[in-house]
């Protein structure tokens, strides 16, 4: 069966009934909805990269520009956007970590590393990186 043949209903020559998913197919099941939200995290990741680039640029432009940027970043609409973006990044991190063991099979000493260990190691890496960034920025 090919894509061209995906008509909504039977015709006189083809008695098969063909169903096409509606555009909002992903609202029909919680698991599909979480999947599409996970995929939409991409938009917020792109936004945060842009935001961080603007931040770096402001720092490079001097003390006043930096202070102005912090004021701008505290404006209500931007705070709302960034809170939403942060929530999507957390969704990305959690889902990414939990799916990694399915995509990767690690062997240590001829034995398969259990999925829990892979997930745990990723959270450990997250903790180390986060602590390092915090130390580097605020020391």
């Amino acid at each position: 069966m090919t894509g061209e043949a995906m008509e909504r209903s039977a015709t006189d020559t083809d008695l098969h009934y063909r169903r096409t998913p509606p555009v909002f197919w992903w609202t029909r099941k919680p698991s599909y909805f979480v999947f599409v939200m996970r995929e939409l995290s991409s938009l917020f990741i792109a936004w945060l990269v842009l935001y961080l680039l603007l931040f770096v640029r402001a720092v490079g432009r001097g003390e006043t520009a930096y202070a102005d940027f912090l004021d701008w970043a505290a404006s209500p609409w931007l705070v709302v956007l960034n809170v939403v973006a942060f929530a999507f990044v957390v969704l990305h991190t959690v889902t990414w970590f939990s799916l990694t063991p399915q995509a990767m099979v690690l062997q240590v000493g001829g034995r398969r590393v259990p999925p829990r260990a892979i997930i745990g190691a990723q959270y450990a890496a997250l903790a180390v990186v986060s602590a390092f960034v915090l130390w580097l920025v605020t020391r």
Binding site: Y51, L52, F55, L70, H92, T93
Partner: peptide, 16 residues
């Protein structure tokens, strides 16, 4: 993104 963005976003977009 999974490892670097949470802390960067939290610090620079919210906490500071």
């Amino acid at each position: 993104a999974a490892i670097f963005l949470p802390v960067l976003a939290f610090l620079f977009a919210l906490a500071f």
